[in-house]
Design a protein around this nucleic acid. Sequence first.
DNA 1: GATCCGCTTTTGTCTATACAAATAGATACG
DNA 2: CGTATCTATTTGTATAGACAAAAGCGGATC
Lengths: 247, 247
Amino acid sequence: MVSIHQRIVEDIETRIMGGIWLPGHRIPFEHELVEEYQCSRMTVNKALSALAQRGMITRRRKVGSFVASRQIDRTVMDIQDISTEAELAGHHHSHKILRRKVETLDAATAAQLGETTGADILRLHCLHTVDGKPNALERRIIMLAMVPSARTESFASVPPGKWLLDMVPWSKARHVIRAVSADAATARLLETERGKACLTLIRQTWQMSRTVTHVEIIHPGDRFQFAGDFHPTERGVPNQRSKRGSF
Amino acid sequence: MVSIHQRIVEDIETRIMGGIWLPGHRIPFEHELVEEYQCSRMTVNKALSALAQRGMITRRRKVGSFVASRQIDRTVMDIQDISTEAELAGHHHSHKILRRKVETLDAATAAQLGETTGADILRLHCLHTVDGKPNALERRIIMLAMVPSARTESFASVPPGKWLLDMVPWSKARHVIRAVSADAATARLLETERGKACLTLIRQTWQMSRTVTHVEIIHPGDRFQFAGDFHPTERGVPNQRSKRGSF
DNA sequence: GATCCGCTTTTGTCTATACAAATAGATACG
DNA sequence: CGTATCTATTTGTATAGACAAAAGCGGATC
């Protein structure tokens, strides 16, 4: 019991993925597909529009529809809150607040965040432990103007990442992943050697172009990785099989 | 000049993003939106279907449509072929093949790839240079059964990543990012110190559940990072503003 | 109380038609 | 020859109507 819509989409996808229709190949015109599938143009149009929305094909009036060029260059990474991640993988997670201080934003940090200096912020340092082993060091800044209730929250029971996700609407997130060598203080906290390769995830979250929070999470390189699957049929759409950072 | 379709989508998105409609909130029924926008049900249906396809809302017959729970946990990373990446960023890229050898797949590597032992492979080592500085070390395995033409290709002018992208259809790609310390050989080639934190990208590409290629690309940590933006309105859909790994 | 049946509501899919917008290619004109 | 205009084709959007499928709900029956 598959719909015509679905059949058209799958037929075209199969031909693109199987290499029968290469990038640039012209897909039959709507009226040709109408003839082939014996259905109305609306149905064909919906099918092709859906493929276009997913980036499988590009469409131009008067010209036609064409197989889009392959892009291996995009992958969807699952980048979760650490505690959620650990729970999903069946590990035991706990956290400890190392530092919690209300400050005003200094010039250097303000520039880094793209915000103006002098704003009230909450600075948090937090150590995450998974199955008894230190797994990540979190250094976070929360803009108190955007999240006033953070001023009175201790974060003792709920980790800051999870708490913020539940509390604050956001409209944009940016992730950066880089490799850094652990400095002495970091190495000590994470119980690893100084100079050890660490995977650092930086995430900045905005709501309507104003920063909500900025966080830097440092993982020892031997205890963490990011992974993501990508299927060209699902261009850019997150798929269920993609794995989270694993241990 | 915006279509009704578009107006409905944007109105709903705005309310979800602004926190007016929280996750779980019931969106007006189709017939209510028909009344509100004075349009046909097909138009409303198409708008809501598109939102559902993007994961903004979930829909259930007889029950209604609801705001989906927020997911900050997914981000779209642009992970490109190195030479393409460098060109796009306006840098000069060159590469040198360090090793090129046809072998048979040994048991250990076969297990790592999830393939059976004994298959013919081409093993390539390649050094990438950007603006005169060593930028990445590439260690690649190509399954010759899947790409017979690789047997006679020297890869002297076109780097292997680009060549493969243009030659071979693929149906699945998996990316893993991890941090490692450079060993002596790697450090020498990349002109950095031994033990230096490096960002490693592993990519395995399949066609119809058979491996096409497996590649490990090692970047010095101080010369590379991955970055990606994510907008909840575009759930999982790659967006134009997201940046490539930068230097 | 438990189970089954049918009613009703809501979404899913499809049709046939219509007009609008973009644009490649042909044609007319200076 | 270059340029403006027209025309035919293709996609984009919208309508009104129809029936199907899923599922909550209440009532009848055992």
